[in-house]
Structure formats: structure tokens, C-alpha cells
Amino acid sequence: MLILHQTQAIHWALAGLGISFVTITLLAVANRRLGVSTGFEDLCSLVLDAPYFKRSAVTSGRPWRLPLLGGLLIGGVLSAVLGGGWSPTWDLGMFDTDIGWGNGGKVIWMFAGGLFIGFGTRLAGGCTSGHGIFGLSNLELPSLVTTVSFMGAGVVTTNLLYRVIL
């Protein structure tokens, strides 16, 4: 069951097929390797003028990365609308039942987690899509190293929180 409208999740193979379709189409038509986290740099480059954000790898990606990020947002809206209607929600599943912090606590928790995501993905040179899907599919060693690192850290962190601390 998804947190969103308590909907039944689609089969994993259908999701894998959909993600593959997006990845291959992006490459076959537009010559782009799938990746989301560099989009954060695109957004940063709109307001920060450190040399890192002025490099052409970041600025030249804007015409395709920003629409892709916008599409991810629209996909979420569409999913909510078609699944029972769109409305703002603070529901957070087992975080609510096991940890039970209020909205203010969730904002702090999420912001702190976001810092790790933003800094970590950019230091690693990619996230689940760029390393985990594209890099692994292209048999790239740095992607295997990164994927093992983030999966391992996630397993340790979640188990520490839900099986040791709680």
C-alpha cells in the first residue's frame, strides 16, 4: 500500500519497464544519459556564481534537465489527481506510527536528510538514476562502487533507526 491515497502499488516489473523506456528514449533520441542529481546543480547555478556552477557541463544541461525535473513534478501531481484527488498532506507512514514527530519535526528531519542527499549525490557524481540505473546498465565500475556505498549506508541507517534505537 502506498502512503498516497492508500493505493495498491503497480507491479515492480512494470515500473522497471517504464524506467527503462524513459532511459533508452532519452539516449536514443536526445543523446543524454539519464540523471537527476545534476539538476540540483542546474538550479543552484541560477543563483550561485561559484566557478563550479559556471562550468559548461552544468549550464549546457539546462535546456533538458530543467524540463525533466518539471516533468517529475507533474508526474507526481498527475498520480495524485488520478488516484483520488490532489491535496496537501503531511502523511509519512511508519515515521508517523513509530517516531510520531509533528510537522515542525518533520521539516527539520527532511531538511537535514536533504543536506546529505544534495552534498552526497554531487560528491559521488550521481544518484540512483545516474549511477544505479544508467551506470550499472552501462557496466561502469564507479557506478557499482557508488551503488554499493549508498545501498549499504541506507541499510545501516534505517536498521539503526528502526531496529536499534526504536
Binding site: V36, S37, G39, F40, L69, L72, L73, G76, L92, F95, W109, M110, A112, G113, G114, L115, F116, I117, G118, F119, G120, T121, R122, L123, A124, G125, C127, T128, S129, H131, P142, V145, T146, T147, V148, S149, F150, M151, G152, A153, G154, V155, V156, T157, T158, L161
Partner: peptide, 23 residues
């Protein structure tokens, strides 16, 4: 790859989201 991967994994666990799913 290793250090950033570990930091990202911690963040993925904390938020339950990787970059695409945040949006």
C-alpha cells in the same frame, strides 16, 4: 564515489527519497 555514496545513502534513509522522488 564511496564517501558521497555513503552520505547519500544516509540521506535516502532519513527522507525516504532519492533526488527524483523528492520532486
Amino acid at each position: 564515489n564511496v564517501v558521497g555514496g555513503i552520505l547519500f545513502g544516509i540521506g535516502w534513509s532519513i527522507t525516504g527519497m532519492c533526488p527524483g522522488p523528492i520532486l
